[in-house]
Simulated scan of single mutants.
Amino acid sequence: MTATALEPTTSSPTTAPPPAARRERSQPRALILVLAVVAMLVSLVPFYWLINTSLKTGGDLSSGSLYPADPSLRNYLDVLQDGDFLTALGNSAIVGVVTTALALSFASFAAYALARLKLPRKGLILGLVLSVTTFPVISIAAPMFKIWSDIGLYDTLPGLIIPKLTFALPMAIFVLTSFFREIPFELEESALIDGATPFGAFRRVILPLAVPGIATTAILVFISVWNEFLLAVTLTSTPGARTVPVAIAYFSGISEFDNPIGTISAASVLVTLPLVIVVLVFQKRIVAGLTAGAIKG
């Protein structure tokens, strides 16, 4: 055995980056963190001011104080005792749930065809579907008002569901198409080999695997329909058919001598808080739904 074989082999230790390099790398991270905190605070200021105003009563409403001098839940109690607001709340729930259910039903079939079937120019078809969302709502509000008045759908819940469904479908189709594309084709092929029909494979294999995407789409569509204002205010005229955003806009307080800003703020908090909770709970699914298929198509 040679002497050189007996010599221990030494590996060069990993060289740690110098302190100056570590500081240079940490500076962008610190800057990003600061910018994120500033953006979060700026986003929360309007919501905090809304809650602050909703807890004020009487002369305190005209003050610009950062916190209520005498916090009170009177505005919330007044809103919950207002029959028109509760009716509008129920209308929004009905329109939101029905529109979301219809959008998911139609969009699931359309998205399956665009994602799984061999269709020519699928990208063009999807682009045409998404082009519907580029139309300004204000450009069709007046014609829809005339058509709905002529056929008897004006100031009715079906008259709100149909146009809201038109604008909800493109987003639902786009999100579901991205989710369906990520499901392996082998699973569907196995079901077809085992004797399942194409619809049976869609119902028994694709839909169960796409449940997370369907849930994400339902949340996005429901929030969009719940917050829609322009069509709701154009196609309704009585409290019996108004949705929550329109009811808040017409809110005048409990009596004609009250400053309605307190009750408007309380109503806005009651309407917004459930949506905020849903977004916070399902934020990862919502982000995944918006970014699904962004890298691989």
Rank of each mutant, 00 (worst) to 15 (best):
A292C: 04
P260V: 02
S265W: 00
E188C: 04
L104Q: 01
L220F: 08
T197Q: 08
T87A: 13
L128M: 09
I94C: 02
V276E: 08
L35S: 08
G64F: 03
L130C: 07
V271F: 15
T10A: 13
F179N: 00
T263R: 04
A5W: 12
I295V: 15
L117D: 06
T2N: 13
L104F: 01
I51V: 15
S224A: 15
A103W: 06
P208Y: 01
G58S: 04
L55E: 08
S11I: 15
A36T: 14
G90E: 11
S11P: 11
V38A: 12
V279P: 04
N75Q: 07
G96C: 07
L61G: 01
G83L: 10
R25K: 09
L192F: 10
E256M: 13
G58L: 00
L86S: 12
A196V: 07
V276Q: 08
L114T: 03
F199Y: 11
A110H: 03
L130S: 07
R74A: 14
F199R: 09
A247R: 02
A111F: 05
F109S: 07
A288Y: 06
Y112V: 04
P18S: 13
T272G: 07
R204S: 10
V45I: 15
L61A: 00
F202H: 02
S108C: 09
P68H: 03
A101V: 11
N91A: 00
L31D: 09
I51F: 10
Q283V: 10
E24A: 14
E182M: 02
I214W: 00
I51N: 06
A93C: 06
F229P: 00
D82L: 00
G253M: 01
A20W: 14
S224W: 12
A266P: 07
P274I: 11
V233A: 13
I51K: 05
W49M: 15
P184W: 04
Y76S: 00
F185H: 12
S26L: 14
S190E: 14
S108P: 07
T216D: 11
M144S: 12
